[in-house]
Computed example of a mutant assay.
Amino acid sequence: MRQHQTAQRVLQVTSPHEATGMTLLEGPTFDGQGRLHLVDVTAPAGAPKVMRIDLDTEEITPLVTEGNGAFTSAQWGPQDGRLYLTDYASGQIISVTAEGEDARTVFSGEVEGRAMHPDDLAFDEAGNMFVSDSSPTVYPDAAPTGRVVRIDAETSAATVLADNQPNPNGISLDRDGALWISQLDANRIDRLLLNQDRIAVTTGHTAIHVDGGPSQADSNAIDADGNIYQASHGIPRILVYGPDGTHRATIDIPAEHEGLESATNLAIRPGTQKAFVTVSGPAGGFIYRFDALAEGTRQSNGG
């Protein structure tokens, strides 16, 4: 039986910026102390681009404010405990300490002759990164040119695992060594099975067609039972699918909470069923919570 939940508002994090006219929260991820970190994609230089939130006290601490970067996701490195950030604007991936210091460029430059537009990322246990490289063109103006890219943990060498993708966004790696890719311009979720070394795709197919209506498939996450949580850009909701593609649950934002347009991303706190989602629109940027169907793991925690 399909579940239905209405998410509860936790707190407001941001208001629309005067310089950009909007705010867009993304990349929620928990550190080892249970503090939530997230990014504001549209924050101008001088405003908080990366923030830490104590959910008990609701204290918000700015961690990164400098530069013109547009950070679209955040994820903790499994080997070094640093926070990794994708910069859609510059095409770089950087890492910082838990306090937002000691910024290091992890990746920059072209991949097979073209600059990257990194959106979301996932790690394997060895620290190799899997990145959704968004298309520089927008459907239906041109053929799909998005890519899925692997960045080696030791060498930072980038390899294209899949190309001609219709604007890939969300990306999660499951326990079977498969990537689940949300295709923004196709409203679908693809499953790409990797080889044992996770350096190439062995098979791939469209696994789930998302009934998005006016919304588009944004970021995603996977819980301990393999359920896929699909965030939505255009309608603030989360759609949950079983690993067999069954639509298992819908999490809505209360209809009376006006001025909210997108539920872009979520994190299930590892070891618990407490899920938190970033919700944004003209009313501002907010955190909402709901009960996940199963416990969170590292793959449920940001990306």
Rank of each mutant, 00 (worst) to 15 (best):
R269E: 14
A158T: 01
G296Q: 02
A115H: 11
V149F: 00
L85V: 05
Y229M: 09
G281M: 10
D80C: 02
A45P: 06
L266Y: 03
P44R: 11
L184E: 08
G259P: 06
R191M: 08
T42R: 12
V279S: 08
A224Q: 13
I94K: 07
A224K: 09
N227V: 00
L184K: 11
T97Q: 09
D102K: 15
S108E: 14
A267R: 04
T20W: 10
Q75K: 14
A43C: 11
T86I: 03
R188Y: 04
G32K: 12
G303S: 07
P168E: 08
Q33L: 13
H205S: 13
F30W: 08
W180L: 13
I93A: 00
R52G: 07
Q216Y: 12
M1H: 12
T203M: 08
T57R: 14
D133Y: 01
D225S: 11
S219Y: 02
R248Q: 14
Q79S: 10
I93R: 00
A153Q: 06
G177I: 07
T42D: 11
F286K: 09
T65D: 06
G234N: 08
H17E: 15
G284W: 07
G213D: 10
T246N: 10
G302Y: 00
Q183F: 11
A267H: 09
D56C: 08
T250M: 11
A158G: 03
V10Q: 11
A231Y: 01
Y84V: 05
A47W: 04
S262P: 05
L11V: 06
F130Y: 15
R298I: 09
L173H: 00
Y84Q: 06
V279W: 09
L83A: 01
E66Q: 14
A221R: 10
A157F: 09
T14V: 10
F123E: 00
R175D: 14
D56V: 05
G34R: 03
D102R: 15
I222E: 02
S280T: 15
S95M: 01
R248N: 11
Q92L: 03
